[in-house]
């Protein structure tokens, strides 16, 4: 892939994952701990969990934070593969 194509590919993926209603990065921070605790306990995802997963698909910085918090708290999030 050329650099041009890489940028367009990246943008197309972001556009594809875009939802009409999205939580922002502050809202992500408000619910990420609840989300990780639910994942750790194997509980069903709530609407807020779904909104968080959508957010990290369009926000690389919050995805980076989610991975770091999970690592710090030893929460196995491999079950989320393909979803985030």
């Amino acid at each position: 892939m050329t650099a041009d194509e890489r940028h367009l590919d990246q943008l197309a993926r972001l556009v594809k994952e875009t939802a009409d209603e999205e939580i922002d990065c502050d809202q992500f921070l408000e619910i990420v701990a609840i989300f990780l605790n639910r994942v750790a306990q194997g509980l069903d995802p709530t609407a807020a969990c779904r909104a968080l997963k959508q957010h990290v698909r369009v926000c690389p910085e919050c995805k980076e934070e989610l991975l770091a918090i999970a690592q710090a708290e030893s929460v196995d999030i491999s079950c989320l593969q393909g979803e985030i």
Partner: peptide, 25 residues
């Protein structure tokens, strides 16, 4: 602003990671 549905330490760690990564970024 802590909400009891989350483990306190996970909530605190989330704040710490946000702060640290923001500084590194």
């Amino acid at each position: 602003s802590y909400r009891a549905e989350a483990r306190f330490t996970t909530w605190a760690m989330a704040l710490a990671v946000r702060l640290s990564l923001t500084k590194l970024r």
